[in-house]
Amino acid sequence: YKIYPYDSLIVTNSISVKLPKDVDRTRLERHLSPEEFQEVFGMSIEEFDRLALWKRNDLKKKALLF
C-alpha cells in the first residue's frame, strides 16, 4: 500500500470526500506509515490485525478512517 499522511485519509460525513485515487477505500488504515499508525491507533499494525473485526471497525470509525 502507498503511504499517505493521516490528514489526507480521514473521512468526514461530507459527500465530497477527495481521497487519493489509488487508496483502498476499505482499508484506509493500511496507507498510514507505521509511526503514524501507532500514533492514531495506539498500537502496531500487527496488534491491530489480531483484534476482532468489530473492534477494528470501531477503532477505524473513531479515527475517521471508516
Rank of each mutant, 00 (worst) to 15 (best):
R27H: 15
R27Y: 07
L64S: 10
R50E: 13
L9C: 02
Y1H: 14
V11W: 08
P34V: 15
D7V: 15
L59C: 03
R56P: 01
A63D: 01
T26K: 10
E39H: 13
D22M: 04
N57Q: 10
K61P: 00
K2T: 14
E35V: 13
D49M: 09
T12N: 10
R27T: 06
S8F: 15
V11F: 09
F37C: 03
N57T: 11
D7P: 09
R27C: 08
I10D: 02
L53A: 10
K55R: 13
T26V: 07
K61V: 09
R27A: 11
P5D: 06
K60L: 05
R27D: 03
E47N: 10
F37Q: 02
N57M: 11
K60M: 03
T12Q: 10
E35D: 11
K18I: 12
I45P: 07
R25F: 08
L51Q: 07
K55I: 13
E47T: 10
L19H: 07
K62H: 08
I45N: 07
L51V: 04
L59I: 05
S44G: 12
R56D: 00
V17K: 13
Y1W: 09
D49Q: 08
K18Y: 07
K2E: 10
N57F: 08
F37E: 00
E39R: 14
L51F: 06
H31L: 03
S16M: 12
F66V: 08
E35W: 10
L64Q: 12
F66I: 08
P20R: 04
K55V: 13
N13V: 08
V11P: 06
E36Q: 11
V40K: 06
L9R: 00
R56K: 10
P5T: 07
F37T: 02
S14F: 06
V17M: 08
S33F: 03
E39A: 13
K2F: 07
S44I: 09
K61T: 08
K21P: 15
D7G: 12
Y1S: 08
L65M: 05
K55M: 13
R25A: 13
T26Y: 13
L9V: 02
P5F: 03
E39D: 12
R27L: 08
L51T: 04
L53F: 10
V11R: 08
D58P: 02
L53K: 09
F41W: 01
I10G: 02
P34L: 11
F48I: 00
V23F: 03
E29M: 01
N13H: 10
W54K: 10
I45C: 07
H31E: 01
Q38A: 12
S16L: 13
I10F: 04
E35I: 12
E36V: 08
R30M: 07
E46H: 11
D24L: 05
K18S: 15
F41Q: 00
D7S: 15
L51A: 04
P34M: 12
F37G: 00
I3W: 06
S33M: 04
E47Y: 09
D24K: 05
I15H: 15
E36D: 12
I45L: 13
F41I: 04
V17Q: 15
R50Q: 14
D58T: 11
F37L: 02
L19E: 05
D24E: 06
E36C: 06
D24Y: 06
R56H: 02
E36F: 03
R27E: 05
R50M: 13
T26H: 14
K60T: 02
A63G: 04
I3M: 06
K60H: 01
S14M: 12
R50T: 13
L32G: 00
H31I: 01
Q38R: 13
V23K: 01
N57D: 11
K62W: 06
P5I: 03
V40A: 05
V17C: 15
S14D: 15
D22A: 05
L51C: 06
K62N: 09
R25D: 07
K61W: 07
V40H: 09
F41D: 00
F41Y: 01
L28S: 02
R56M: 06
K62Q: 11
L65A: 01
K18N: 15
E29C: 02
K61R: 12
V11H: 08
R27S: 09
F66N: 06
Y6A: 02
D24I: 07
L32I: 07
L28E: 01
R25Q: 12
E36T: 07
N13G: 13
E36K: 05
V11Y: 08
L19K: 04
S14C: 15
K21E: 15
I15L: 14
R56S: 04
K21L: 14
V23H: 02
L53E: 12
G42T: 08
Q38C: 10
E29S: 01
E46T: 12
D22R: 04
N13I: 06
S8C: 13
K61N: 06
E29V: 01
R50I: 11
M43I: 07
S16K: 10
D24H: 06
T12L: 14
E46K: 13
D49I: 04
L64R: 14
D7T: 15
K62G: 09
Y4G: 01
K60S: 02
F48L: 03
H31M: 02
K60C: 02
K2I: 12
I10H: 04
V40F: 04
V40E: 02
K61Q: 09
D22G: 08
V11Q: 14
Y6K: 03
S33A: 11
V23D: 01
V23M: 04
L59Y: 05
D58H: 12
G42Q: 13
F41P: 00
F48P: 00
F48W: 07
Y4E: 02
K62Y: 06
H31R: 02
L9I: 05
T26A: 13
T12F: 15
K21G: 13
A63F: 07
L59M: 12
E46S: 12
